[in-house]
Design a protein around this nucleic acid. Structure first.
Length: 578
DNA sequence: TCCATAATAT
DNA sequence: GATATTATGG
């Protein structure tokens, strides 16, 4: 839509024609199945969007290249003969930076994740609901909005704000985009009640809360490290992170939490260290100055390793690693979540601890334990229980990453895995032994991730550090799009393949029955029925349960986290030191 | 209800 | 930017 593209591009929304807003959205639909193309086209047109269809990915790419500004958003099927949907996704992201929505009949989480990981702003399962299509403009909107923000176009925001408030998204509503806007603008204006009324109900969305996924946090930490803990500030971090949709406030909030966490850690550490005498000479946690994030020579090696294994993409960052200070590490280890309450075995996880005989210190176990229990990830915990020795610390860690097969390391892996699994299933019965087998999965992720991570090492680590934060882990990714706690982005609902198939069949049948093209009514009816059914079928499950996501297989296929987390841990350590 | 986290206010 | 407060979601 012109309005959208023009005004937004300019970062200024002079015309308050909210009514027109979503209409005219230029959508490029790619699907090798002509039937689906037709269905989608019709549906999209119903939304008043401007639709262009392609049955080949290559063709789509060609069109996009010809006129980069001709489309606002791309919806692509995952399975296509000429080119993998994910490839297309990547290309588009690379070349034209348009929001891309992936779709397929396959609702397997791993796939969805892959899509998201490759930058898809959404992943729709076929059959697709009107509602879902109707709301796709959100992605465009959000993107533009962020761009506008980048320009620091306040007017743009204002306009956006107005736009949103003015246009009562009659339909389904709202979206996080809106929310996001309001939030940016200060919710105070918008007014919470407002939110509820206007967007509230039908919108699958709740609040647009940013979920600090491991990936995101990793970026955050990297930024912090680059800047220097002492000189760090929300703005700087934000800049370095280069995550378009993130706001300074988001970062500030996170930073606050982070600092709190660190201070807490420190406090506890001090206590412990004093008693246990663990502290290392270097531990002087306090001196920010000395604490450069760059690795010291000694650390370098290690860090390199780490880097290699984990973040090939940006090894540039200093991998913060450093905290070779055993003392620190130790603390980190123990600290992670150590809050009294947490310490108490809330869940069955306890059993997990036991098995970890390897864990040297009780603290360590705690940490582990905590991690598991907590939904959140810990900032820098180091689940490597066994590594208690100072010397071992850094080196070992690194080693473990790079050389999975090491004994000491191995242990960790197992432990960690169990952790993750445990958290995933929250199955108390899981014991180390049981878990152990899961090691077999390594190969899986290793393969999967090959491009990202160098082999083996990552796996171990990954698992290791991949403590908690269940959902976030799963849902987040490197996708440029924000992930909110609300389920907006990812349509996690309904993964029931059978249902999907049926519906799919149904939808197709309907369509095929008459001349779909000339039977809008049918479609409507169709959608209607579908929607109803869909809801019944899927909505019983509500939002996907984490547990579903947490299938070990999933874990295996979720590379990012792994190494991310690994990196992470190291990063945090350094921070901690500071 | 409590807790952790993120948003928002100051 | 730091910190306090509030809100949200689990």
């Amino acid at each position: 839509m012109t309005l959208l593209s023009n005004s937004m591009d300019n970062g200024c929304f002079s015309s308050p024609r909210h009514e027109a807003f979503p209409a005219g959205l230029r959508v490029l639909v790619v699907d090798d199945d002509p039937t689906w193309l037709r269905i989608l086209e019709k549906m999209l047109k119903k939304c008043l969007y401007e639709v262009t269809t392609c049955c080949l990915a290559t063709e789509a790419l060609k069109k996009l290249r010809e006129r980069k500004d001709a489309y606002d958003i791309v919806i692509s099927d995952v399975n296509m003969p000429d080119m993998d949907g994910f490839k297309l996704l990547e290309q588009v992201g690379l070349e034209m930076d348009l929001p891309v929505i992936m779709m397929s009949v396959d609702g397997e989480t791993s796939r969805v994740m892959k899509g998201v990981q490759h930058g898809a702003c959404d992943y729709l399962l076929k059959p697709i609901r009107m509602k879902e299509l109707r709301n796709i403009w959100q992605h465009v909107f959000r993107k533009r909005m962020h761009e506008a923000r980048d320009f620091e176009s306040h007017e743009g925001f204002e306009a956006l704000h107005l736009l949103m408030n003015g246009s009562e998204q009659s339909d389904d509503g709202n979206i996080f985009a809106v929310e996001e806007i309001t939030s940016i603008k200060k919710r105070k204006d918008a007014d919470s009640k407002h939110d509820d009324k206007e967007f509230g109900d039908h919108s699958p969305t709740k609040k647009a809360r940013v979920v600090w996924s491991v990936d995101l946090h990793q970026k955050f930490v990297k930024a912090v490290n680059q800047i220097g803990f002492d000189k760090v500030g929300p703005k700087k971090i934000l800049d370095l992170m280069s995550v378009p949709w993130l706001t300074r406030e988001n970062v500030a909030s996170h930073l606050q939490k982070y600092r709190l966490y660190l201070s807490r850690l420190q406090k506890e550490n001090d206590q412990k260290s004093s008693s246990s005498g663990i502290k290392h000479s270097d531990s002087p946690s306090k001196d920010p100055g000395s604490f450069s994030f760059l690795n010291t020579a000694s650390n370098k090696q290690q860090s390199d390793v780490v880097i290699d294994s984990f973040s090939p993409s940006d090894g540039s960052l200093l991998q913060m690693d450093a905290p070779s200070h055993e003392g620190d590490l130790k603390r980190i280890l123990s600290e992670p979540t150590t809050e009294k309450r947490r310490a108490s075995p809330k869940s069955s996880q306890m059993s997990l601890n036991q098995p970890f005989s390897s864990v040297e210190s009780s603290e360590a176990s705690h940490a582990i334990f905590d991690c598991t229990i907590q939904t959140q990830y810990s900032w820098g915990e180091f689940p490597k229980g066994p590594l208690k020795e100072e010397q071992k610390t850094t080196v070992q860690l690194e080693d473990s990453f790079s050389q999975l097969p090491l004994h000491g390391t191995r242990h960790h892996i197992q432990v960690d895995q169990s952790q993750s699994i445990a958290s995933i299933n929250s199955n108390p019965s899981i014991t180390e032994e049981e878990v152990a087998p899961s090691l077999d999965t390594k190969p899986l992720y290793a393969g999967y991730k090959s491009d990202y991570v160098s082999p083996v090492s990552s796996m171990g680590t990954a698992v290791d550090t991949f403590p908690n934060q269940s959902k976030s882990l799963i849902l987040n990714d490197q996708s440029p799009e924000p992930i909110f706690t609300s389920n907006l982005g990812l349509k996690t609902d309904g993964f029931d393949v059978d249902c999907i198939s049926d519906l799919d069949f149904y939808q197709r049948s309907l369509l095929l029955c008459g001349d779909a093209a000339s039977a809008p009514l049918e479609e409507d009816l169709n959608f209607f029925l579908l929607q109803t059914e869909w809801y019944n079928m899927n909505f019983g499950q509500q939002n996907i349960d984490i547990s579903e996501c947490y299938d070990p297989r999933l874990v295996a296929e979720a590379p990012g986290y792994f190494y991310d987390s690994a990196d992470y841990s190291s990063v945090d350590q350094s921070l901690f030191i500071a």
